[in-house]
């Protein structure tokens, strides 16, 4: 009696590999956008004729507790200009956009020094606002 050896086929499950590759892609895209500011509480002021920023190199948030954040990290406003300078580096004009997200009730004592810091660092301010519900009543 002759017993034949069992043969095993090793195949790569192409469908599952495709799924894994797609998940990895999404994971990397998420990491690339890792400026998580979702925990910050702020409500935008209103404005008209709003536009999307051409690019975004940094994001400054002042939340309802008057705390200043740079790219989601709390920092003292005194160091904001220096940190922005190192972030923006030698980027050309037109490519130095700083998103500026300030809670609508924050007072000038807190947001004006931040604006000054962005200006000192050569950043191009982009105030993030929400469209006025009734544009006729907006200025």
């Amino acid at each position: 009696m002759i017993l034949r050896r069992k043969t095993f086929e090793a195949t790569v499950p192409s469908m599952a590999m495709g799924d894994i590759a797609f998940l990895l892609l999404i994971f990397i895209v998420l990491l690339a956008r890792a400026r998580d500011e979702s925990h910050l509480v702020w409500q935008p002021a209103t404005g008209t004729e709003l536009v999307k920023p051409a690019n975004r190199n940094a994001s400054v948030v002042i939340d309802r507790q008057n705390v200043t954040y740079l790219n989601g990290r709390a920092i003292p406003v005194e160091t904001l200009a220096a940190e922005l300078e190192s972030l923006l580096g030698d980027l050309p004009a037109g490519g130095r956009t700083v998103l500026f997200k300030v809670h609508k009730d924050v007072i000038a004592e807190f947001f004006e020094p931040a604006i000054e810091a962005v200006s000192e660092a050569g950043g191009e301010l982009h105030h993030v606002l929400e469209p006025a519900s009734n544009p006729a009543s907006a200025p």
Binding site: V29, E37, F100, I115, S119, G122, E124, H127, V128
Partner: peptide, 29 residues
């Protein structure tokens, strides 16, 4: 897998931050 991908897709959509606004050039000090 499909369900998981859909969950991730909706999470990404939900986490998009608003960016519309107004640009302003403030001259240096």
């Amino acid at each position: 897998d499909i369900a998981f991908i859909l969950i991730v897709f909706f999470l990404v959509c939900a986490s998009v931050e608003p960016e519309d606004g107004r640009s302003q050039v403030i001259p240096r000090s």
